[in-house]
């Protein structure tokens, strides 16, 4: 953190810009950098693959948003009342994801559960974005002692493992969907604060911002007109990444039983409930989990696409 390792070594604490790229950073050209493969012209599917995966990622997110907004369009069945005669049926044309011990259609429950994950993810990212960006912008623009103090607070936040920090907030606020989402949001405050501070410091040093000051711009107007818009892409990429992480963390809290109470069809809770039928009904745990994986992968891919574009634009 104080050590200057910039050229060879990514700063251990400064994992925001790194983490931003890392989970998705499969180089689109498959940069294997072996002398033999690098010289060969990339195969045609290589050019298409990154675009295909970004398109798929957006399609997945759009579908899940649609599930959350209008679940009735995607399924005609009821997520809360089941048909006891159909209980524990394996996946079929009538029940795509099978049914649970009370005969409720699992696909319907997953569709209705989308709103809890999406809302939770949005609240979590919102908490992290607002609180983190505020901290970072204040630290980066005022500087001096306050900057030092706020960044030490960020260090402290980073020193507590994410899950434990979430659990500390939950023990304070109590169980529930919104509380779990806030608790997850608190863990991303540090990342947003670091990123926005470094962006503000970077943009501040550019010539057009100097020029804006030189031509008599006041601090707040320059901040709003020049600094914030130019930091936006980086923050957006982090927000997309944090959204995926938040969906994952919220399902974990739901699984541990600290999120929405049953019979809410929250994804983590669905998986937790399916555990009692592990030996006989694989679909109860496997399929909702796959949905979580696909959504998180998509959010990460979108985040990677945003940062790739940003680097390409520079």
């Amino acid at each position: 953190m104080t050590l200057e390792l910039e050229r060879n070594v990514p700063d251990p604490a400064d994992e925001t810009p790194d983490g931003l790229r890392s989970p998705i950073d499969v180089d689109p050209e498959g940069r294997t950098s072996l002398a033999a493969t690098a010289e060969r012209a990339p195969a045609p599917w290589r050019r298409v693959l990154p675009w295909l995966s970004v398109g798929l990622a957006f399609a997945v997110v759009a579908l899940v948003v649609a599930w959350a907004l209008a679940p009735g369009l995607f399924t005609a069945q009821d997520p809360y009342t089941g048909v006891p005669a159909d209980k524990l049926a394996p996946p079929s044309a009538a029940h795509w994801f099978g049914t649970d011990p009370t005969g409720r259609d699992l696909f319907t429950r997953v569709v209705y559960g989308a709103r809890y994950s999406l809302l939770g993810g949005t609240v979590a990212v919102g908490v992290g974005l607002v609180a983190g960006t505020a901290l970072g912008v204040i630290a980066g623009s005022i500087g001096g002692f306050l900057d030092e103090l706020l960044m030490r607070v960020v260090d402290v936040l980073l020193s507590i493992p994410g899950l434990l920090l979430s659990l500390s907030v939950i023990i304070l606020l109590g169980f529930g969907t919104t509380n779990a989402a806030i608790a997850v949001g608190v863990t991303s405050v540090a990342a947003f604060a670091r990123l926005s501070r470094s962006e503000v410091v970077r943009v501040r040093r550019t010539e057009y911002v100097e020029a804006a000051f030189g031509s008599g711009g006041r601090w707040w107007s320059v901040l709003l007109r020049h600094v914030l818009p130019n930091s936006l892409t980086a923050v957006l990429a982090l927000a997309a990444l944090q959204f995926g992480t938040a969906v994952l963390a919220i399902s974990t809290l739901g699984f541990l039983g600290y999120g929405a109470p049953p019979p809410t069809p929250e994804w983590g809770l669905l998986i937790s409930e399916g555990r009692s039928h592990l030996a006989t009904s694989w679909w109860l745990t496997t399929l909702p989990g796959l949905v979580v994986v696909v959504v998180v992968l998509s959010a990460n891919r979108i985040s990677g696409w945003i940062s790739e574009r940003r680097e390409g634009a520079r």
Binding site: V26, T32, G268, G274, R275, V296
Partner: peptide, 28 residues
Amino acid sequence: SWLATLLRSLPSLFISVPVFWLGIVLIQ
């Protein structure tokens, strides 16, 4: 190169998997 691309994309898959679900699937 296709194998390298596949292997390089595995970490992003690993990161997206809920730990609790992975445990359950392994038990299963």
